[in-house]
Write a protein that binds this DNA or RNA. Sequence first.
DNA 1: ATAAGCACGC
DNA 2: GACGTACGTGCTTATA
Length: 520
Amino acid sequence: MTFAGNPNDIYKIEIPVDDEKCKNLLTKFDCIFKDKDKTIIGHNIKTIISFLAKYDIEIENKLWDNMIAHYLIEPELNHSLDYLSDIYAKDSSDINWQLYDKFKTSLSENNLENLFYDIEMPLVKVLADMESNGVKIDIEGLKQISEEQSKEIAGIENSIYEIAGTSFNIGSPKQLGEILFEKLNIKAPAKKTKTGQYPTGEDVLQKIINENPIVQHILDYRSLTKLKSTYVDALPSLVSHRDGLIHTSFNQAVTATGRLSSNNPNLQNIPVRTEKGREIRKAFVPRDENHILLAADYSQIELRIIAHLSGDQAMLSAFRNGLDVHTDTAARVYGVDIKDVTSEMRRNAKAVNFGIIYGMSAFGLAERLKISRSEASEIIKNYKKEYPGIQEYIDKQVAFAKEYGYVETMLGRRRYLRDINSGNSVVRNFAERNAINAPIQGSSADMIKIAMKDIHNEMKLKDLKSKMILQVHDELVFDVYKDELDVLSELVKDKMINALQLEVPIIVNINTGNNWLEAH
DNA sequence: ATAAGCACGC
DNA sequence: GACGTACGTGCTTATA
């Protein structure tokens, strides 16, 4: 452990391997760690907090994390200490002091101080707690699923080899492409991948699904082996020997937009879409019989944010009147009464609403909905007419980016768009889509981060036994001590709803269950 | 060790 | 004529 009370006064302390001795030594630093007026300046402080937490030591200092400061200043650059010292300080032993001086100025100049002091720094401790809390999984349940999957995969392999007339490695896109488009003579897609292979992604296979029964088997094989290798077999191996729980890492300085990411393992992409995928979600369970899982998720948060940011009257009134927004959109773009909206019209309208958030083209919409390009253009034309405020907002964002070189979220989190004036239309269009999406996705990230901080504070004040365990972008998951269910539900709902005031109501759905699927 | 292709989430 | 929807993580295969 290295300390520097000022830039020229550096101390290094060797940490004993033995747990008891280590704790004794670290406890002697309580005079520093419990001093609320002192600031701990470091790089990736969460690792220090987590390390000390293993010895029941909590630091009560103010925090300054250079990794996160730099993430706010330049979200898309590298934030490793190696890189920062190369760029800003040339590898000296008081590197964190030097970075502190430089970044303090930059944060101030870019109006990022509130985001840093009031949201990101408090969140460091929240994430450390969530990681340390951990999640219980039903290992026996997963083992059983794994065995059933092995049998099913073997059966599918046999069917595929029989149709192909030969055995080959189905997991190799290269070999698979040759079997499908050469041996079996299925009509090949118009163009190959950049490495000269036949593309065999899901969208490609869906287009030839009626050509040969082997195609459905391939899709089944792909989804099953994905679930087995990434989740069913991998998760049990990541259970901690210390407490029998899974401890993910939440990364606070990775995404370009301000979202968190999760790895080792990634618990933000646990399957939910398909029936077989949902079986995996069932294996996420409360830590013991005194607990129950609670999931709280924001309803349509990104669309509510675009309604707020754009001020579009039609979108605002849909949310204010508590309408199903996709049904309302369908009624508008198809020019029918709400009661006459078919499920297909609603499905298409939903795709358009999402497409707006991502900056989709008529071609993209047509591909996605399997409708003609002219039909897609018609829908988009009507959409722009019905929601003029949204089109104005999009134009305004792109114009701002072209003038200033960045866009920002509701709380001033920036994303720089250096290609926004590029002469290459491909890279320029990409930057324009980012100019539309980043403020929406990023404001949603700002909002849930505020809620997490507020919930964490309140849980600590009330000394609750329940634990916040996961964040999945618009959802928070808690392992709730059953006696606290009512008080925690109220608390979570209140803090999520009131994190940021928008021009539309915020809706939070809460459910509980004896596994993560049930809690949804 | 790294890139490509693919598939999972929001 | 090419391009065609944002943000991530991680698996297997193929290659250096």
